[in-house]
Structure formats: structure tokens, C-alpha cells
Amino acid sequence: MTPEQFNAIYRAELGSITRFIARRVPDSEVEDLAGDLFEVAWQKRSSIPEGFEIPWLYKTARYLISNSRRKLDNRKRIFDSLRPPTSAPSAESIALADMELGASWGKLKPQEREIIALWALEGLSNKEISIVIETSENAAAIRLTRAKASLKYFLDLENQSDVRTSN
């Protein structure tokens, strides 16, 4: 693959990748992470499955984000060292637009937040999600179903709480 071909393919994904990273890190880090990501993509261009560039980019970006968080935040680094890598928008960022959703989002497990974000925000199919989180399509579908059910459950609790408060 020539640099020109690389540019043609990956420029088309730049918007999606920008938003994927921006949902998960401060604005000041987006460009650095995106630059690192495309460098890795160039180095690994021969091993990226044709037609699956986007889930491959998300998968690798997920690790880059996880590593950058570990580097920048000791406390998060501790958690990350104890858990599988995840990357998902924070409850705080979600809550800025929807406080009730943010509260429920904060109650989800990190893996649940991540898979819901891949479904709702990145708009990935079960197959694509399975590539990003490195599991089977079947398992990805199950995890997504469970995560959506959990979020809906917490939202229902929030609604009930609001009703009680208003009464």
C-alpha cells in the first residue's frame, strides 16, 4: 500500500476516529492520540483486514486511550492494571447533556459503558464490536444486550426516584 492509498482509505475515517477519541479524552489530547493511531495503522497496514479498517482503528485506539490514561493518571492506572483495557466516555461528559442519563451511565461497569458507546455512539454492528473488543460476535451481542438492559434498569430507577422526589 502506497502512502497515497493509505491517505485515501484512512482520511475517510478521520471524522469517525476524531469523535471516537474525543468522547474519551480531553480535547487537548485528541490530535496526539489520532496521530499515534495513524502511525500504528501505517506500520501495521499490511495486517489490517480489508473492509474492517474502522473496527481495527477503534480496537487499537482503545488500547492507546487506555495506555494514555494509565500514563496520565496514577489512580486510573491502578484500576487499569487490575482490569482489562476499556475506553468509554465518562459519566461526567455524558451528564453535561443529560444529567439523569449521566447518573445511570456512571453506575454501569466500564465494559458495559464501552460496548454501549460502540453501539450507540460509534454505530457499530455486533460483528464490528466483536472485533473492537476482541470477542466473538455471539458474545458481543450478548454483552450488548445485557449492558443495554442494565442501563435501562438504572434509568428506570432514576425515573422512579424522580417521581418520589416530586411527590
Binding site: P3, F6, N7, Y10, R11, L14, G15, T18, R19, F20, A22, R23, D27, V30, E31, A34, G35, F38, E39, A41, W42, P89, S93, I94, A95, L96, A97, D98, L101, G102, I116, A117, W119, A120, L121, K148, L151, K152, L155
Partner: peptide
């Protein structure tokens, strides 16, 4: 649920990066 999450997307106003970020890789 999906529509509600999308409405709260923290990146919905994120400007796209300059294409140079790909070209320089």
C-alpha cells in the same frame, strides 16, 4: 435509549482534525 445516548454525545460538536494527521503518518 440509543437516541437518548446520541443526544448526550459529548463529541457531537467536535471539529474534525486536519487531514494532515493521516497524511503525515
Amino acid at each position: 435509549l440509543r437516541i437518548r445516548i446520541q443526544a448526550a454525545d459529548p463529541a457531537q460538536n467536535t471539529p474534525e482534525l486536519n487531514h494532515a494527521v493521516v497524511a503525515k503518518a
